[in-house]
Simulated scan of single mutants.
Amino acid sequence: MSRIRPRTPLRRRPVPSAVIAGTAVLAAALTACSGGGGADSGSAGLGGGKKQTAISVNLSGKQATAGEPVKVTLADGRLKEVRVTDSKGAELAGGISADGRSWTSTRTSAPGTSYSVAAKDTEGGSATAAFTTAAPDKVNKLTLVPGKNSTVGIAQPLSIVFDHPVKNKAEVEKHLKVTTSDKTEGSWGWMQDWSGKDRADWRPKEYWKPDTKVTLKADLNGIDSGPGGGWFVRDYTTNLTVGRNQIVKIDLDNHRLKLLRDGQQIKDIPMSAGTPGGEKASWRGRTVLMSKEGTINMRSETVGLGDAYDKMVDYSMRLTWSGMYAHAAPWNAGYFGSANKSSGCIGMSDADAKWIYDQVQVGDPFEVTGDDAKGTQALNNGYGEWNLSWSEWQAKSALR
């Protein structure tokens, strides 16, 4: 008698997950209707017997590479909308390709940041995913001058000092955006700050026009400043308004200080500048009023002049990092208008210094001329960029 062997039920072979090389497939594929195919280990089919499809993201996991654009790719069909947001709700801008198959962010992913991806296709399907970029080994920060909502003089540059070295200067400069209300022409220039740190200044071609509105946006979040510098992990912004058109002119040889407003002289003051022939001489050149510091203690040893003086000085107006000021100097009254006998500063009577102090704005140009000087103010000794020609200044841009 023959034996009939029981039939073994056929085992359905699992459908392989959709894989795209070098990408991470979203946990939930786009599905065109509610109750569609369930998710497997990375992809899912569309409901109603439609062709299986999936989307992928080039960054995945909890240690994703920072500093790259985010790219979302659709296996089939056309994308309608993609949103990539971080944990604080900030959204990465981006655009869908002409064929509708992919979306790419216009900015790069920031380090140490969690992102959520939400995508929709033209058939009404949707999917979400998430990834986190690796934390930075080092963070670079910066200081912006002037501060927000400042009103400044016509020579004030925009100035950025970085905490750590910036080797990728060109890449950083690409993300520094200056906009003005009157389309002022200007350029970035790089230097080493007086403090020894990397610094970038934006100077207009000519002095600002009064009432110009200026905004600086440093869109640096997700930018690598290069070896030894670390990552930027936030954006920065500042803005300013240009105030009155006024210039302080200092004639070292004739011992006069004049204030011009809108091209007209409104004050002529006798003064005494630095003693010529040595380190006590004043600097010449076009400098910028850095700060109005009021009454301060000035000590000669801080500027390398031994124990020559230790005084409380009124109406102090800083012109350089090396210690050149304009200020009240009543002890030098016998030399006002006749000789330069100070330790490098521009000295005036109490009354004249107060009047100038009350009139000037941070950012006003102080144009110092004459032979009784020890040379021209250095580029980084305060704001010395106005002593360069326009072409010389442009050459200091990392993008030239």
Rank of each mutant, 00 (worst) to 15 (best):
P6Y: 07
R7Q: 14
T8F: 15
L10F: 01
R11V: 13
R12S: 10
V15T: 13
P16F: 05
S17G: 14
I20N: 09
A21F: 02
G22M: 12
A27P: 10
S34N: 05
S34Q: 09
A39H: 01
S41K: 08
S43A: 14
L46G: 11
G49Q: 02
Q52C: 11
S56Y: 11
N58G: 03
N58S: 03
G61K: 10
K62F: 03
A64E: 02
A66R: 04
A66Q: 09
E68S: 10
P69T: 02
V70M: 12
L74Y: 12
L74R: 11
A75L: 07
R78W: 08
L79D: 00
L79R: 00
E81R: 15
K88L: 00
A90F: 06
G95P: 01
G95A: 14
I96C: 02
D99P: 06
D99M: 03
G100M: 03
R101Q: 13
R101A: 15
W103S: 08
W103V: 02
T104R: 11
T106D: 14
S109D: 03
P111V: 00
S126H: 12
A127Q: 02
A127M: 05
V139Y: 05
K141I: 10
A155K: 04
S159E: 09
P165F: 07
K167Y: 02
N168R: 11
V172L: 13
H175D: 08
L176R: 02
T179R: 05
T180D: 05
D182F: 00
G186T: 01
G189T: 08
M191L: 08
Q192S: 15
D193N: 14
D198G: 12
P204H: 01
W208I: 03
P210R: 01
L216W: 10
D219E: 15
L220N: 01
G226K: 07
F232C: 05
R234F: 07
V242S: 13
G243I: 00
G243C: 00
Q246K: 01
L252H: 01
L252Y: 02
H255L: 03
R256N: 11
R261C: 09
R261S: 08
G277A: 01
G277K: 02
K280F: 07
A281S: 08
A281T: 01
S282I: 05
M290K: 03
S291C: 05
S291E: 12
T295W: 06
M298Q: 11
S300V: 10
G304I: 07
G304F: 12
L305M: 07
D307Y: 07
D314Y: 00
D314R: 04
S316D: 11
L319Q: 09
W321G: 14
A326C: 09
A326G: 08
N332R: 13
G334A: 07
G334M: 06
S343R: 10
I356P: 04
Q359L: 12
P365T: 09
T369N: 13
G370N: 03
A373F: 14
A373M: 14
T376F: 11
Q377F: 06
G382I: 06
E392W: 03
Q394H: 04
R400P: 15
R400M: 09
